[in-house]
Design a protein around this nucleic acid. Structure first.
Length: 845
RNA sequence: GCCCGUGUGGCGGAAUCGGUAGACGCAGCGGAUUCAAAAUCCGCCGCCGCAAGGCUUGCCGGUUCGAGUCCGGCCACGGGUACCA
């Protein structure tokens, strides 16, 4: 009888006792596998199970192939939800967070992951964030840190800064007030200084998904363009010209206006004497700071009445426009409506000229309607009075030629720019790592002395009023200036939680060290050989970690090779589930948990009262839609092995997987079958069977390849097939016993507890988790015949089985003699016969 | 808006290099066992068609002896968009 609850606890205790999962530096090659650590939201969900099951497959497999494995776990424990919980129910973020961590660890341990729990930490442990402060001070000293203005979401009613997700349709989530953009002085990491290096090093990341590299490359956004000054017809407020940067200098002749950001110094100066412009600027400041909000906002402009001289003759009007951002380039652009949709919309709205500078190759009648003409820069077009003299050529040729021309004319200068902006790390929040600096009246901004670290968060805070509790704390801010000893005030900004997650992988190599890293440990364990996490982290987290690893190398905390900290990256998909809902009297949706719904012949019904339930297609599990599955319940009913096997079985790891009750039940049935098969051969003497040995060898080969290449679903499919083969085999019990023993090893990364049970029942020595991975006998994998499909005109008509090394001519003759082929040819002679050895035959009639 | 993905039977999905589309699993159907049921075991199972055969990988077009796979255009859905993590 297969009883997961009994065997799983037993084997977990056995592994613990053997200390199998404690990472040790020894003579074996090391392997560091890491899953992105979780946020302690309350309980683990089935998506976590899938993520850690994948890492555990790798960890157990690598251990079996003779590696010394580091497989740690921790918690990304600072962040907004803890403060939100404190606001909602009056607790303290610290208590909430640590209680959640306890719950989640208690949920994870029964799943049997081969984690070195001794290394666990949370980023909100003073031991961790104190080292983060030390790291920050080293980075400050090394010139990686800056202080400058940044734009934030300001809630004018709550008088507080809002996160982007707290801005809903341009309004504050609590106050409902219209949010406005406001500039604050903030701390920054100078990641943009590293843009070129972060871009170029992507090339070396051979084991990263190319989509992630493409996304990062686009995010960094290297571009070559032209920077030029447009002379104001009349100098004003100390401005003689407007500096503009453009990546499309080839469209210079089509420029019909200059647009500057509302925060541009010239716009600000003009607004001081023009109430209408000031009102306009105030108006366009409304709304959130996200790129999406800015890009999709209706385009608005204000004509300043000023003009600039065009280097090509004539003058252009100067507008203030909401779609020009001070953070990008110079805060000013020229508008070329003919070849930019945004500029065209703007020009149509405000009746500005639309001047084409090129048209499709060899086209006579060409006019711009309400759609800008924007062909790829690689397409050849005909140019109209192009200043650099191009007549027919690609956009890229014209861009290069125009930059050269502009430099020769002294109009402007070619310039390489990056889209990547510096990383603003200041947060006006309590539950984060305090930035360890002081503001001293005498000395200015002074770094805290390292011996005073950690700068810990005060516990006596309240969340009944909006804003940062550190700001209003009666005593916490006051401290002695480390330089002059006088009175100083602590910085009350805390760090972005992305800082916490940008070096935790390094800390795992020596989680209790008195410095951020212990170089001997870090040099041994780094890099992370396999990193596994969600695609949602493709850009920010991974880019910030790459930056941090470089900064940590520069400050002596990591070696040269760790500058790219993640050798291989795998991005896994989500676990989804159907959504069940009924309606209340007012027609509002009422969501139901999967366990509260039952399938009846005529559809889904609510368990409580039998009401008919509407079923919506699977979507990412979310608490609000109640389409969540709690792993604790699954483990209790079906066992950890069933949960682990199922989340990996049905879908390729990089894709989403749909959780279904039927699926996990089928898994449980299969695992029970395997258990039964092992019981049947207990006590048999080992025996041999050629057919079984061949099948086992094939399974070893395919499962190994599957595990090596993240084809977990394919490996599991093969394990299903192997179980069926063994079950149906007429071979002696002893031969099945041998086959099952190897199958236990192949199953061990997926269902480690059941594997131990089968291993023991079939006479395996010691723990299966400690046994070396099986190797397939190459001689058993080859076959001397091959079956070839035969196509006629690309359609499959027949197949033939021939010797593997049969010459092409003989294969062709045999194929043409095939009755089905003769019939398909209908007496006609083949025009051509294509024989792809070992693959296919195609007869062209 | 912009960047990156994904789209294959009733369902989840397979097809590692351009070479038999639908492995494996679910659901369904038929049978064995059983007094009966559960459990278990065996078999069938893309669509249309009595059959021969035809059709079929989101839609439209292209390259090729041959396209789920490569190219172009569209549609839908998902991720990211710098203060959610």
């Amino acid at each position: 009888m297969y009883d997961p609850s009994a065997i799983e606890a037993k084997w977990q205790a056995a592994w613990d006792e053997a200390g199998l999962f404690r990472a040790r530096r020894d003579e074996r090659p090391k392997y560091y596998v890491l899953e992105m650590f979780p946020y302690p939201s309350g309980r683990i969900h089935i998506g976590h199970v899938r993520n850690y099951a994948m890492g555990d497959v790798i960890a157990r497999y690598k251990r079996a192939t003779g590696h010394s494995v580091l497989h740690p776990m921790g918690f990304d424990a600072f962040g907004m939800p803890a403060e939100n919980a404190a606001m909602a129910s009056g607790g303290h973020p610290k208590e909430w967070t640590y209680a959640n961590i306890d719950t989640m660890v208690a949920q994870m341990k029964p799943l049997g992951f081969s984690i070195d729990w001794d290394r666990m930490f949370a980023t909100c442990d003073p031991e961790y964030y104190g080292q983060q402060q030390a790291l920050f001070l080293d980075m400050l000293e090394a010139g990686f840190v800056d202080r400058k203005k940044a734009t934030v979401n300001w809630d004018p009613v709550d008088m507080t800064v809002l996160a982007n997700e707290q801005v809903i349709d341009g309004r504050g989530w609590r106050s409902g007030a219209e949010v406005e953009r406001r500039e604050l002085t903030q701390w920054f990491f100078k990641i943009s200084d590293m843009a070129e290096e972060l871009l170029e090093a992507l090339d070396g990341l051979d084991d990263w998904p190319s989509k992630v590299k493409t996304m990062q490359s686009n995010w960094i956004g290297k571009s070559r363009g032209l920077r030029m000054g447009w002379t104001l017809t009349e100098p004003t407020h100390g401005h003689e010209a407007i500096e503009v940067y453009t990546t499309r200098p080839d469209t210079l002749r089509g420029a019909s206006f200059i647009a500057i950001a509302p925060e541009h110094p010239l716009a600000k100066a003009l607004a001081e004497e023009n109430a209408d412009l000031a009102a306009f600027a105030g108006n366009v400041r409304k709304g959130g700071t996200t790129e999406e909000a800015l890009e999709t906002a209706p385009k608005m402009g204000f004509d300043t009445g000023r003009t600039v001289e065009s280097p090509l003759g004539g003058t252009l009007p100067v507008w203030v426009a909401n779609f020009v951002l001070m953070d990008y380039g110079t805060g000013a652009v020229f508008g070329c409506p003919a070849h930019d949709q945004r500029d065209l919309d703007f020009a149509r709205k405000y009746d500005l000229p639309v001047i084409p500078t090129f048209k499709p190759e060899a086209m006579e009648d060409f006019a711009i309607g309400n759609e800008a003409y924007v062909p790829p820069k690689t397409e050849t077009v005909d140019w109209i009075d192009q200043p650099a003299g191009i007549e027919r050529g690609t956009g890229q040729q014209a861009i290069d030629a125009t930059i050269e021309w502009a430099e020769a004319q002294g109009i402007g200068k070619g310039e390489t720019r990056f889209r990547l902006r510096d990383w603003g790390l200041s947060r006006q929040r309590y539950w984060g790592c305090p930035i360890p600096v002081l503001h001293c009246e005498a000395c200015g901004i002074v770094p805290e002395a390292k011996e005073n670290l950690p700068v810990t968060l005060p516990d006596d805070v309240s969340f009944d009023v909006p804003g940062n509790p550190l700001d209003r704390h009666p005593t916490w801010r006051r401290a002695a200036c480390p330089r002059c000893g006088g009175e100083a005030l602590r910085e009350t900004d805390t760090m972005d939680t992305f800082v916490d997650s940008s070096w935790y992988f390094a800390r795992f190599t020596a989680p209790r060290a008195a410095t951020p890293t212990d170089r001997a440990e870090a040099d041994y364990w780094m890099n992370v050989d396999q990193y596994i996490g969600g695609i949602e982290h493709a850009i920010l987290h991974l880019l910030y970690s790459r930056f941090f690893a470089r900064a940590m190398h520069a400050t002596g905390h990591l070696s040269e090779k760790a500058k790219e900290p993640f050798d291989a990256l795998f991005t896994q998909g989500m676990v989804t589930h159907e959504i069940y809902l009924t309606r209340d009297e007012a027609g509002r949706p009422v969501y139901h948990l999967p366990e509260d719904v039952v399938a009846k012949p005529d559809g889904m019904r609510a368990l409580k009262d039998g009401t008919e339930v509407e079923v919506f297609p699977s979507a990412k599990m979310s608490k609000s839609k109640k389409n969540v599955v709690d792993p604790a319940g699954i483990v209790a009913r079906f066992g950890a092995d069933a949960a682990r096997w199922f989340v990996l079985s049905d879908s390729p790891p990089e894709r989403d997987v749909e959780w279904t009750a039927a699926g996990v039940e089928a898994t449980a049935r299969h695992l029970a079958r395997v258990h039964r098969m092992a019981e049947e051969v207990v006590g048999a003497e080992d025996a041999r069977d050629a057919a079984l040995e061949r099948e086992v060898a094939r399974a070893v080969d395919e499962v190994t390849k599957g595990v090596d290449s993240f084809g977990f679903n394919a490996a599991i499919a093969k394990l299903y097939a192997l179980a069926a083969t063994i079950q149906k085999s007429k071979a002696a019990p002893g031969a099945r016993r041998v086959a099952l023993r190897t199958m236990a090893q192949l199953m061990a990364p997926f269902t480690p507890h059941l594997a131990e049970e089968v291993w023991q029942a079939t006479g395996g020595t010691g723990l299966c988790a400690a046994a070396p991975w099986p190797v397939a006998d190459a001689a058993l994998l080859v076959s001397d015949t091959v079956t070839l499909p035969i196509q006629v005109n690309g359609k499959r008509r027949s197949e033939i089985t021939v010797a593997k090394d049969m010459p092409k001519e003989e294969v062709e003759a045999e194929a043409l003699a095939d009755p089905a082929v003769v019939r398909a040819l209908d007496g006609g002679a083949p025009r051509k016969v294509i024989v792809v050895p070992g693959r296919i035959v195609n007869v062209v009639a």
